[in-house]
Amino acid sequence: MSSEWPLWEVFIRGQHGLNHRHVGSLHAPDAEMAINNARDVYTRRNEGVSIWVVRSSDIVASAPSEKGPLFEPSNSKVYRHPTFFDIPDEVGHM
């Protein structure tokens, strides 16, 4: 039966604010049941205060075969990390 239901990706925002994080996926016939199922499957241990679900088929992903052209060029650009500045003491923690 579950094989007939579409797959949904689940994002949960934890107790301490911050952003919604991807926690996993599940099957459900529609958005409302996906939210209920996500509540039952992924928030059993008090993990969340907010749930997002999105149809897995609506997620556009980068192609694994493009990994080289997409990501390797940034390997050699260490100057993009802001680690070459002297931060004045009075700025404090950044």
């Binding site: 039966m1 579950s2 239901w5 599940l26 099957h27 209920n36 199922n37 499957v41 059993r44």
Partner: peptide, 9 residues
Amino acid sequence: APALEEDIA
């Protein structure tokens, strides 16, 4: 249960 999600629920 007929589906994993229903089983957990």
